[in-house]
């Protein structure tokens, strides 16, 4: 009996270590998005020039997000859409107790037009949608 339950215990522990976010979000103590905006750059972990319009000459668009609390390590996604067409899905890891993170995309001439970034959890639940335009 003792030898039969031991492998099951190890298996359960292993699963917790492998999928901490899933475990955290299912626990009923969710992570919370406190800040989300677009900016031109991040320098020394500080967002620079918060904006909603990017010129392609700037070459980069950055989506900055801050979460508090982050009860345990979790995964979120920044999903970038050009018009309604998916362009990039960036996986970001959050760590307790609070965490700020960002993603960015490189802008090209064909990217001119309206964009949106959906900030979602691992299950696809949307925290927030940011909208912006890429212009000449």
């Amino acid at each position: 009996m003792k030898y039969k339950t031991l492998p099951l215990l190890f298996l359960t522990l292993g699963l917790f270590l492998l999928f901490p976010v899933a475990a955290g979000t299912q626990s009923g103590n969710p992570i919370a998005l406190v800040e989300a905006f677009l900016c031109e750059d991040i320098q020394d972990n500080v967002p620079q020039n918060r904006t909603t319009v990017f010129s392609i000459e700037r070459r980069t668009a950055v989506c900055y997000t801050a979460f508090d609390p982050v009860p345990q390590q979790a995964v979120i996604y920044h999903q970038w859409f050009h018009r309604d067409k998916p362009s990039a899905r960036i996986r970001l890891t959050l760590k307790p107790p609070r965490w700020s993170t960002y993603s960015s995309i490189q802008l090209r001439a064909e990217d001119i037009g309206p964009w949106r970034v959906e900030i979602t959890d691992a299950q696809g639940n949307i925290f927030h949608i940011l909208r912006f335009s890429v212009t000449e």
Binding site: V53, P114, R116, R131, S133, E136
Partner: peptide, 20 residues
Amino acid sequence: LPVQIDWVGRLPDHFILEQA
């Protein structure tokens, strides 16, 4: 459907559109 502004053209280089 949510409405999104479709900006075109460009601002002067020293300006940014902070909020809309």
